[in-house]
Amino acid sequence: MKYQYTKEFRHNLVEWFNHEKRDLPWRHTSDPYKIWVSEVMLQQTRVDTVIPYYNRFLEKYPTIHDLAYAPQEELLKMWEGLGYYSRARNLQAGVKEVVEKYNSVVPDNRHDISKLKGVGPYTAGAILSIAYQKPEHAVDGNVMRVLSRVLHIEEDIAQPKTRRVFEEAVEMLIDEQHPGDFNQALMDLGAMICTPTSPKCLLCPVRDYCIAFNEGKADQLPVKSKKVKTKKVQFKVFAAVDEEGRYLIEKRPSEGLLADMWQFPMIEINENSLSEETLQQNYNVEISGYIDKELLEFKHIFSHLTWEMECMQVKVVQKMDLPENVLFLTLEQIRTLPMPVPMLKILNVLN
């Protein structure tokens, strides 16, 4: 785009946004805390999925103080089903920093806000531009897709170093009078019009300034290298019930994937061990019978990993003291605990 068209580009984009923007609950506030919550929830999660979570979350934690000192297990239960649970932990840690270091006021500059736990360049820019009306870049996948086409940028957007190219582009183009609207307009344009496949170019408010459209190359951009194949791991999951109708449940480690979440015992399937024997040895129980050897079978896909799950329901008897962080609980008690989505699938088929 030639520099002399920048003014027209931003005017058309912001005008379009004012008329066509999606009606989303976080767009009815300028509270930086609430905008922060929405931006964290929206990372790697669809808008339609986020809306009910956002509303419930802010009903539970309406102020920054409410979230800062909420019990972590309660917080994880509120987040249950959204996935990527480290987002919730980092959000709480960042909020607590604001309460303790910044007198409960979210910083209004990139230097300070970027120091907060879990706040990366995009989240910082989104909060600063939307809540504080600061002309700061907020570059996500939608923004990179739009600007790669408008400006005909051919750098690989899968490469982390490429992000700076788009940040500089936003800094050049941004509407300094309406930075929040400008950044959100780019996001909405990418979500609604300038989509990954079959972009609706004839409906685009800035197509006159789009190099890729004018050259007939919109469907060739952005350039994005393919991801490395995800690793597959097979597990046998046991819905192990004792004589009192209670199920064996364990808490995952406090570090790593799905930290501090609760699950039914999972045994990785390999050639060197039998899953039933491993269950009995690792959990100090003895299998006394089988209820359903094929209770459930499904896959759960993470960004870098696929779990292939085979679940069976067995009767067990406790032989010795249970290991640390392992309990027998009723289904009613288990339903109060934060559990990852694959475990909820299993829980939902148990009577």
Rank of each mutant, 00 (worst) to 15 (best):
E286R: 15
L151N: 11
K60S: 05
G216E: 04
L337H: 13
L186W: 11
L279R: 13
N183A: 05
E80Q: 15
V146M: 10
I301N: 00
H300P: 00
A191E: 11
E268M: 14
T306R: 09
V99N: 05
L76E: 03
S129G: 05
K315W: 06
Q234N: 08
L75N: 03
F235R: 03
Q281W: 02
E171Y: 03
A218C: 07
S198T: 09
Q313D: 05
H178C: 07
V37C: 10
T123M: 02
Q159A: 15
L295R: 02
E155Q: 15
L13E: 05
G141D: 03
G118E: 05
K96G: 06
D181E: 15
L189T: 07
I193Y: 12
I291D: 12
T29F: 08
R145I: 13
Y84Q: 01
N351W: 03
I51K: 11
A131L: 02
L350D: 09
F17H: 14
I301M: 03
P323M: 08
I113R: 05
I153G: 03
E176W: 14
Y290W: 02
Y33L: 06
K345I: 04
S30A: 15
R110C: 00
P121A: 06
K21A: 12
Q234E: 08
W79N: 00
G190S: 11
L75R: 06
F264S: 02
L295Q: 02
M187Y: 14
I127G: 00
V37H: 07
S38K: 01
P265K: 12
I267E: 01
H178F: 13
L91G: 02
Q72H: 05
K77F: 09
S254G: 02
F238N: 05
A169M: 13
I64Q: 13
K7R: 14
E154K: 12
Q159T: 15
F235N: 02
P62D: 06
V170R: 12
